[in-house]
Amino acid sequence: MYRTARRSLFASGFALTTALMFSGLAGNADAADLTPASLRLKWLPQAQFAGYYVAKAKGFYSDEGIALTINPGGPNIIAENMVGSNTDTFGHGGGMASLLQAREKGLPIVGIGMLFQETPYRLVALEKAGIKKFTDLKGKTVSTWFTGPQFMVQAMLKANGIDRDVNLEAQANSMVPFIDGKVDVATVTVYNELLILKRRNVTPAVMFNPADMGINLANEAIIVNESTIKDNPKLVQGFLRASLKGWVYAMTHKDEALDILLKEVPTLNRTEQMETLEALQPLLTYGAGGSKGIGYIDRDNLAFAQKFLLDNGALKKAVDLDSSINTTFWDKVPASDKVIPR
């Protein structure tokens, strides 16, 4: 089973013939006129990235004059690094936190879209833990991933005055320690670990959402290298429009989206991927994502993210926010291509 990436807060050179062979070329553009480009995912192909596969299969990229190759991520393949080095043209990265950390490191990447308007992380506890309200975590053992989410957990604990009274430990790659009661509280994403618990008939008694406690860092950034923006803004515009259009189509035609995804990766479980796809929609349409359109970048939220990361030691120095994002491409995407009908 494919596991969803939890990236640390932390092949663009494919020949045209190779890119075209996998592109499907469902659009109207002449094959000889297509510009080759690549997209690096943050993890392995799965429903978390369905919008791109849909856009490719439906010819949305070729309609924009792009022959797109979609490259998988992996444990040691970080989209921010691949785009920063121009190994890949575009990337589906970790989110605001990883974008800012990459900029601090000097990587010339720019966010042009932010898919998850709401953080996908939750803290969960079973009934046997005896937790009803957040302050009941005092004296309990809490597990989380020390790849970024730990900062949110620590901030939640500190805000409630119990940060010194909780045993915070690294979370395993399995939910078994939580199910067996070896930890009282675990961290989950709504589109992966929470669904794993459901499939095992394990129902958390309580669930705490960081966003409800004022800690909401947008996730799943669409990124590109500064040089690509400068040298080929038409390519960037076409890619973003096609990608957002693909996501809108995937969310409004979920069965067809899964047909496309499973054709690409037949080993995936259709039922599980549908559950994942359904869990993504509230994250995509949270707040401005629903009213203004998916992929919206909220600069105020970016400023909040930077302050949060600085306050928690995840950033050593502030970075220039205005050069970290470029919203002009998103602004030019028609509402029909980025707003999911209600």
Results as ranks from 00 to 15, higher is better:
55 A>G: 13
103 R>Y: 09
171 Q>T: 02
59 G>S: 05
89 T>S: 13
134 F>D: 02
143 S>R: 07
91 G>W: 00
123 L>I: 06
123 L>S: 08
169 E>Q: 15
148 G>H: 03
85 S>M: 12
68 L>K: 10
37 A>P: 08
175 M>N: 14
73 G>T: 08
33 D>I: 02
144 T>M: 10
45 P>C: 10
38 S>E: 10
166 V>A: 05
53 Y>W: 12
88 D>Q: 00
40 R>V: 12
143 S>K: 04
172 A>M: 11
99 L>N: 06
143 S>F: 01
113 G>K: 04
127 E>D: 14
126 L>N: 02
114 M>P: 00
75 P>L: 13
112 I>D: 04
74 G>R: 11
47 A>E: 04
116 F>T: 02
95 G>M: 12
50 A>Q: 02
83 V>F: 08
136 D>Y: 05
106 G>C: 08
97 A>V: 12
37 A>D: 04
91 G>T: 13
129 A>M: 10
163 D>L: 06
62 S>G: 04
55 A>C: 11
36 P>Y: 03
106 G>Q: 08
111 G>K: 04
109 I>P: 01
49 F>T: 14
94 G>P: 01
75 P>H: 08
125 A>L: 07
120 P>K: 08
159 A>Q: 15
60 F>R: 06
41 L>W: 15
66 I>L: 12
105 K>Y: 07
112 I>P: 01
62 S>E: 12
174 S>G: 05
169 E>M: 05
133 K>Y: 08
100 L>Q: 06
125 A>G: 11
79 A>L: 11
78 I>C: 00
75 P>A: 13
89 T>I: 12
98 S>K: 00
168 L>A: 04
65 G>I: 09
110 V>F: 05
39 L>N: 04
69 T>V: 14
81 N>P: 01
125 A>N: 07
111 G>P: 06
48 Q>G: 15
78 I>D: 00
40 R>Q: 14
130 G>S: 02
139 G>R: 01
149 P>Y: 03
61 Y>P: 00
153 V>P: 03
173 N>Y: 14
173 N>T: 12
38 S>T: 15
